[in-house]
Protein backbone atom coordinates (compact mmCIF):
# COMPACT_ATOMS: atom_id res chain seq x y z
CA UNK A 1 0.00 0.00 0.00
CA UNK A 2 1.09 3.53 -0.74
CA UNK A 3 2.79 5.04 2.32
CA UNK A 4 0.49 8.05 2.55
CA UNK A 5 -2.58 5.86 2.12
CA UNK A 6 -1.36 3.55 4.88
CA UNK A 7 -0.83 6.44 7.28
CA UNK A 8 -4.23 7.86 6.40
CA UNK A 9 -5.86 4.49 7.02
CA UNK A 10 -4.11 4.10 10.39
CA UNK A 11 -5.18 7.56 11.50
CA UNK A 12 -8.74 6.93 10.37
CA UNK A 13 -8.88 3.68 12.31
CA UNK A 14 -7.43 5.40 15.35
CA UNK A 15 -10.20 8.00 15.22
CA UNK A 16 -12.88 5.35 14.80
CA UNK A 17 -11.60 3.29 17.72
CA UNK A 18 -11.47 6.42 19.80
CA UNK A 19 -15.09 7.14 18.94
CA UNK A 20 -15.93 3.60 20.09
CA UNK A 21 -14.25 4.23 23.43
CA UNK A 22 -11.49 1.77 22.56
CA UNK A 23 -8.74 4.09 23.67
CA UNK A 24 -5.90 1.56 23.86
CA UNK A 25 -6.65 0.33 20.35
CA UNK A 26 -6.74 3.94 19.11
CA UNK A 27 -3.42 4.65 20.81
CA UNK A 28 -1.86 1.63 19.15
CA UNK A 29 -2.88 2.90 15.71
CA UNK A 30 -1.57 6.41 16.38
CA UNK A 31 1.74 5.04 17.63
CA UNK A 32 2.01 2.83 14.55
CA UNK A 33 1.29 5.79 12.29
CA UNK A 34 3.81 7.91 14.19
CA UNK A 35 6.54 5.32 13.70
CA UNK A 36 5.97 5.16 9.96
CA UNK A 37 5.94 8.96 9.64
CA UNK A 38 9.18 9.23 11.59
CA UNK A 39 10.88 6.50 9.59
CA UNK A 40 9.88 7.95 6.22
CA UNK A 41 9.92 11.65 7.06
CA UNK A 42 11.89 12.54 3.94
CA UNK A 43 9.49 10.67 1.65
CA UNK A 44 6.36 12.07 3.25
CA UNK A 45 7.66 15.60 3.38
CA UNK A 46 4.96 16.91 5.70
CA UNK A 47 6.67 18.41 8.72
CA UNK A 48 3.44 19.16 10.56
CA UNK A 49 2.17 15.59 10.52
CA UNK A 50 4.44 14.05 13.15
CA UNK A 51 3.87 16.77 15.77
CA UNK A 52 0.13 16.49 15.14
CA UNK A 53 0.16 12.72 15.69
CA UNK A 54 2.43 13.13 18.73
CA UNK A 55 -0.06 15.61 20.17
CA UNK A 56 -2.91 13.13 19.68
CA UNK A 57 -0.89 10.38 21.33
CA UNK A 58 -0.19 12.65 24.29
CA UNK A 59 -3.86 13.58 24.68
CA UNK A 60 -4.95 9.97 24.38
CA UNK A 61 -2.39 8.76 26.93
CA UNK A 62 -3.54 11.46 29.32
CA UNK A 63 -7.14 10.37 28.82
CA UNK A 64 -6.30 6.69 29.44
CA UNK A 65 -4.33 7.61 32.56
CA UNK A 66 -7.11 9.84 33.79
CA UNK A 67 -9.70 7.07 33.46
CA UNK A 68 -7.47 4.48 35.06
CA UNK A 69 -6.39 6.73 37.89
CA UNK A 70 -9.77 8.21 38.68
CA UNK A 71 -11.28 6.54 41.70
CA UNK A 72 -14.27 4.39 40.88
CA UNK A 73 -17.57 5.80 41.98
CA UNK A 74 -17.69 4.20 45.38
CA UNK A 75 -21.12 5.42 46.39
CA UNK A 76 -23.96 4.81 43.95
CA UNK A 77 -27.35 6.55 44.01
CA UNK A 78 -30.00 5.31 46.39
CA UNK A 79 -32.09 3.65 43.65
CA UNK A 80 -29.08 1.49 42.74
CA UNK A 81 -28.48 0.72 46.40
CA UNK A 82 -32.13 -0.36 46.66
CA UNK A 83 -31.59 -2.84 43.83
CA UNK A 84 -28.46 -4.17 45.52
CA UNK A 85 -30.34 -4.55 48.79
CA UNK A 86 -33.42 -6.16 47.29
CA UNK A 87 -32.01 -8.20 44.43
CA UNK A 88 -28.71 -9.40 45.84
CA UNK A 89 -30.07 -10.94 49.00
CA UNK A 90 -30.05 -14.53 47.84
CA UNK A 91 -31.90 -16.27 50.59
CA UNK A 92 -35.12 -18.20 50.78
CA UNK A 93 -35.44 -17.35 54.45
CA UNK A 94 -37.67 -14.34 54.76
CA UNK A 95 -36.42 -13.61 58.26
CA UNK A 96 -32.83 -13.11 57.15
CA UNK A 97 -33.53 -11.39 53.83
CA UNK A 98 -33.02 -7.86 55.20
CA UNK A 99 -29.77 -8.86 56.83
CA UNK A 100 -28.52 -10.46 53.61
CA UNK A 101 -29.50 -7.31 51.74
CA UNK A 102 -27.46 -5.17 54.11
CA UNK A 103 -24.49 -7.53 53.77
CA UNK A 104 -24.83 -7.24 49.96
CA UNK A 105 -24.61 -3.47 50.26
CA UNK A 106 -21.41 -3.82 52.25
CA UNK A 107 -20.03 -6.24 49.66
CA UNK A 108 -20.68 -3.65 46.95
CA UNK A 109 -18.79 -1.11 49.05
CA UNK A 110 -21.89 0.86 50.02
CA UNK A 111 -20.85 1.07 53.65
CA UNK A 112 -22.83 4.11 54.76
CA UNK A 113 -26.08 2.65 53.52
CA UNK A 114 -25.15 -0.78 54.90
CA UNK A 115 -24.52 0.76 58.30
CA UNK A 116 -27.90 2.48 58.14
CA UNK A 117 -29.60 -0.81 57.31
CA UNK A 118 -27.77 -2.71 60.04
CA UNK A 119 -28.80 -0.03 62.56
CA UNK A 120 -32.45 -0.45 61.58
CA UNK A 121 -32.09 -4.23 61.95
CA UNK A 122 -30.90 -3.75 65.51
CA UNK A 123 -34.53 -3.12 66.40
CA UNK A 124 -35.29 -6.71 65.48
CA UNK A 125 -34.78 -9.03 68.38
CA UNK A 126 -33.79 -11.99 66.18
CA UNK A 127 -31.18 -10.06 64.22
CA UNK A 128 -29.96 -7.57 66.79
CA UNK A 129 -26.60 -9.13 67.68
CA UNK A 130 -25.86 -10.19 64.12
CA UNK A 131 -26.61 -6.69 62.86
CA UNK A 132 -24.44 -5.16 65.58
CA UNK A 133 -21.53 -7.43 64.68
CA UNK A 134 -21.86 -6.42 61.05
CA UNK A 135 -21.77 -2.76 62.09
CA UNK A 136 -18.48 -3.50 63.82
CA UNK A 137 -17.26 -5.40 60.74
CA UNK A 138 -18.08 -2.43 58.51
CA UNK A 139 -15.99 -0.11 60.69
CA UNK A 140 -13.18 -2.67 60.80
CA UNK A 141 -13.22 -3.06 57.00
CA UNK A 142 -13.00 0.70 56.66
CA UNK A 143 -10.11 0.69 59.14
CA UNK A 144 -12.20 2.98 61.33
CA UNK A 145 -11.37 1.26 64.59
CA UNK A 146 -12.17 4.34 66.66
CA UNK A 147 -15.67 4.32 65.16
CA UNK A 148 -16.06 0.65 66.06
CA UNK A 149 -15.00 1.36 69.62
CA UNK A 150 -17.16 4.47 69.77
CA UNK A 151 -20.16 2.49 68.57
CA UNK A 152 -19.60 -0.17 71.19
CA UNK A 153 -19.31 2.47 73.93
CA UNK A 154 -22.55 4.02 72.70
CA UNK A 155 -24.30 0.66 73.01
CA UNK A 156 -22.71 0.20 76.41
CA UNK A 157 -24.01 3.55 77.63
CA UNK A 158 -27.48 2.92 76.30
CA UNK A 159 -29.82 0.25 77.51
CA UNK A 160 -30.91 -1.04 74.11
CA UNK A 161 -28.93 -4.25 74.48
CA UNK A 162 -29.19 -6.87 77.17
CA UNK A 163 -26.02 -7.49 79.21
CA UNK A 164 -25.40 -10.88 77.58
CA UNK A 165 -25.81 -9.35 74.10
CA UNK A 166 -23.48 -6.54 74.99
CA UNK A 167 -21.01 -9.04 76.31
CA UNK A 168 -20.99 -10.94 73.01
CA UNK A 169 -20.22 -7.73 71.17
CA UNK A 170 -17.54 -6.76 73.65
CA UNK A 171 -15.79 -10.13 73.31
CA UNK A 172 -16.14 -9.94 69.53
CA UNK A 173 -14.69 -6.45 69.20
CA UNK A 174 -12.07 -6.89 71.90
CA UNK A 175 -10.60 -9.88 70.07
CA UNK A 176 -10.33 -7.80 66.90
CA UNK A 177 -8.67 -4.95 68.78
CA UNK A 178 -6.23 -7.35 70.45
CA UNK A 179 -5.36 -8.95 67.13
CA UNK A 180 -4.67 -5.57 65.61
CA UNK A 181 -2.51 -4.67 68.57
CA UNK A 182 -4.77 -1.79 69.59
CA UNK A 183 -4.45 -1.16 73.29
CA UNK A 184 -8.02 -0.46 74.21
CA UNK A 185 -10.00 -2.22 76.87
CA UNK A 186 -13.69 -2.15 76.28
CA UNK A 187 -15.95 -1.65 79.28
CA UNK A 188 -17.99 -4.63 80.40
CA UNK A 189 -17.89 -7.80 82.40
CA UNK A 190 -15.46 -10.58 81.63
CA UNK A 191 -17.27 -13.53 80.07
CA UNK A 192 -16.99 -16.82 81.76
CA UNK A 193 -17.96 -19.31 79.11
CA UNK A 194 -16.84 -22.89 79.31
CA UNK A 195 -16.97 -24.49 75.94
CA UNK A 196 -17.62 -28.20 76.17
CA UNK A 197 -17.97 -29.03 72.55
CA UNK A 198 -19.30 -27.47 69.43
CA UNK A 199 -22.39 -29.28 68.23
CA UNK A 200 -23.73 -29.41 64.74
CA UNK A 201 -27.32 -28.76 63.73
CA UNK A 202 -29.18 -30.05 60.69
CA UNK A 203 -28.11 -28.66 57.35
CA UNK A 204 -29.98 -25.58 56.22
CA UNK A 205 -30.51 -23.83 52.95
CA UNK A 206 -29.30 -20.29 52.64
CA UNK A 207 -28.38 -18.07 49.73
CA UNK A 208 -29.96 -20.52 47.32
CA UNK A 209 -27.22 -23.03 47.84
CA UNK A 210 -26.78 -25.85 50.26
CA UNK A 211 -24.74 -24.69 53.16
CA UNK A 212 -23.07 -26.71 55.80
CA UNK A 213 -24.75 -27.30 59.11
CA UNK A 214 -24.60 -24.28 61.32
CA UNK A 215 -22.37 -24.77 64.29
CA UNK A 216 -24.03 -23.85 67.48
CA UNK A 217 -22.34 -23.26 70.75
CA UNK A 218 -25.34 -24.59 72.55
CA UNK A 219 -23.15 -26.02 75.20
CA UNK A 220 -21.72 -22.78 76.41
CA UNK A 221 -22.52 -22.78 80.07
CA UNK A 222 -24.45 -19.91 81.47
CA UNK A 223 -25.81 -18.86 78.12
CA UNK A 224 -29.56 -18.95 78.00
CA UNK A 225 -29.84 -17.66 74.47
CA UNK A 226 -28.22 -20.62 72.82
CA UNK A 227 -30.14 -20.70 69.54
CA UNK A 228 -28.52 -17.57 68.15
CA UNK A 229 -25.06 -18.63 69.23
CA UNK A 230 -23.72 -19.30 65.77
CA UNK A 231 -19.96 -19.27 65.99
CA UNK A 232 -18.47 -15.99 64.94
CA UNK A 233 -15.09 -16.48 63.41
CA UNK A 234 -12.89 -13.49 64.07
CA UNK A 235 -9.75 -14.79 62.38
CA UNK A 236 -8.32 -17.84 60.68
CA UNK A 237 -4.95 -19.49 60.45
CA UNK A 238 -4.49 -21.46 57.25
CA UNK A 239 -1.73 -23.97 56.64
CA UNK A 240 -0.78 -23.95 52.98
CA UNK A 241 -0.29 -27.41 51.56
CA UNK A 242 1.08 -26.44 48.19
CA UNK A 243 3.09 -23.82 46.38
CA UNK A 244 6.48 -22.32 47.23
CA UNK A 245 5.49 -21.67 50.83
CA UNK A 246 4.29 -25.21 51.48
CA UNK A 247 3.39 -25.79 55.14
CA UNK A 248 3.64 -22.08 55.81
CA UNK A 249 0.80 -20.74 57.92
CA UNK A 250 -0.96 -17.47 57.21
CA UNK A 251 -3.29 -15.67 59.54
CA UNK A 252 -6.07 -13.34 58.52
CA UNK A 253 -8.86 -11.43 60.24
CA UNK A 254 -12.37 -12.14 59.06
CA UNK A 255 -13.93 -9.04 57.55
CA UNK A 256 -17.41 -10.44 57.00
CA UNK A 257 -19.23 -13.60 57.85
CA UNK A 258 -22.45 -14.82 56.35
CA UNK A 259 -23.42 -18.18 57.75
CA UNK A 260 -20.80 -20.69 56.69
CA UNK A 261 -18.96 -18.28 54.46
CA UNK A 262 -16.24 -16.08 55.90
CA UNK A 263 -14.65 -13.27 53.96
CA UNK A 264 -10.97 -12.35 54.17
CA UNK A 265 -9.20 -9.39 52.65
CA UNK A 266 -5.78 -10.15 51.23
CA UNK A 267 -3.35 -7.42 50.36
CA UNK A 268 -2.48 -7.08 46.69
CA UNK A 269 1.19 -7.24 47.69
CA UNK A 270 0.82 -10.86 48.78
CA UNK A 271 0.83 -12.10 45.20
CA UNK A 272 2.08 -15.62 45.91
CA UNK A 273 -0.68 -16.23 48.42
CA UNK A 274 -3.35 -14.82 46.10
CA UNK A 275 -2.17 -17.23 43.44
CA UNK A 276 -2.16 -20.26 45.72
CA UNK A 277 -5.61 -19.59 47.15
CA UNK A 278 -7.49 -20.35 43.96
CA UNK A 279 -11.22 -20.96 43.87
CA UNK A 280 -12.10 -24.51 44.77
CA UNK A 281 -8.90 -25.13 46.74
CA UNK A 282 -9.56 -27.39 49.70
CA UNK A 283 -8.02 -26.10 52.90
CA UNK A 284 -7.41 -29.16 55.01
CA UNK A 285 -5.82 -27.48 57.98
CA UNK A 286 -7.49 -24.36 59.24
CA UNK A 287 -7.67 -22.93 62.75
CA UNK A 288 -10.85 -20.94 63.19
CA UNK A 289 -10.59 -18.42 66.00
CA UNK A 290 -13.78 -17.28 67.62
CA UNK A 291 -13.65 -14.61 70.31
CA UNK A 292 -13.82 -17.28 72.99
CA UNK A 293 -12.30 -20.42 71.57
CA UNK A 294 -10.27 -21.92 68.77
CA UNK A 295 -11.45 -24.75 66.54
CA UNK A 296 -9.65 -26.89 64.01
CA UNK A 297 -11.38 -27.49 60.75
CA UNK A 298 -11.47 -27.52 56.99
CA UNK A 299 -12.67 -25.10 54.39
CA UNK A 300 -12.79 -24.52 50.70
CA UNK A 301 -11.98 -21.36 48.76
CA UNK A 302 -15.46 -20.43 47.57
CA UNK A 303 -14.55 -17.38 45.54
CA UNK A 304 -11.72 -14.94 45.00
CA UNK A 305 -12.05 -11.52 43.49
CA UNK A 306 -10.23 -8.26 43.19
CA UNK A 307 -11.74 -5.29 45.02
CA UNK A 308 -12.53 -2.61 42.49
CA UNK A 309 -13.39 0.40 44.55
CA UNK A 310 -13.14 1.95 47.96
CA UNK A 311 -10.24 2.08 50.40
CA UNK A 312 -9.27 -1.55 49.76
CA UNK A 313 -9.14 -1.15 45.99
CA UNK A 314 -6.64 -3.54 44.43
CA UNK A 315 -6.69 -5.97 47.34
CA UNK A 316 -8.37 -9.33 47.05
CA UNK A 317 -11.57 -10.50 48.66
CA UNK A 318 -11.58 -14.18 49.47
CA UNK A 319 -14.67 -16.15 50.50
CA UNK A 320 -13.98 -19.35 52.37
CA UNK A 321 -16.76 -21.79 52.98
CA UNK A 322 -16.39 -23.60 56.26
CA UNK A 323 -16.67 -27.29 55.51
CA UNK A 324 -16.04 -28.75 58.85
CA UNK A 325 -15.21 -27.63 62.36
CA UNK A 326 -14.23 -29.91 65.20
Amino acid sequence: MDLKKKIKSLLQHAELYKSQGLLNEALEKYVHAGRIIKKHAAVIGNKKLLPAVAKRIKILKAEINRIEASPDMSVVPENVQDIIKNKFAFTDREETRDLEGAVALAKFGQYDRALREFRVLMDREDLKVNAAKNIIRCHVTLNAMSDAVGQYREWFDQSALRPEELNKLRVFLQSILDKKGIKETLPGKEPEPIVREAIVEDPGIMDGEIILPELVQGEILGDADAEEEIIDISSVEITLEEGPGKWRTVEYDVSFQSGRVINLLISSSDKALIEILRTGLELKKVHFYSPIAMFNGEGVVFSKSRIESGPKQGDYSLDIQIKHIR
Binding site: G21, I67, D72, M73, V80, I83, I84
Partner: peptide
Protein backbone atom coordinates in the same frame (compact mmCIF):
# COMPACT_ATOMS: atom_id res chain seq x y z
CA UNK B 1 -33.66 1.33 33.50
CA UNK B 2 -31.02 1.77 36.16
CA UNK B 3 -27.41 2.27 35.09
CA UNK B 4 -24.18 2.68 37.01
CA UNK B 5 -21.83 4.30 34.57
CA UNK B 6 -18.42 5.63 35.47
CA UNK B 7 -16.10 7.99 33.66
CA UNK B 8 -15.77 6.96 30.03
CA UNK B 9 -19.24 5.37 29.86
CA UNK B 10 -18.06 2.20 31.52
CA UNK B 11 -20.47 0.20 33.64
CA UNK B 12 -19.37 0.06 37.27
CA UNK B 13 -21.70 -2.46 38.88
CA UNK B 14 -24.53 -3.37 36.53
CA UNK B 15 -27.42 -2.04 34.47
CA UNK B 16 -30.85 -3.22 35.45
Amino acid sequence: MVTTETDGDRTLFFDF
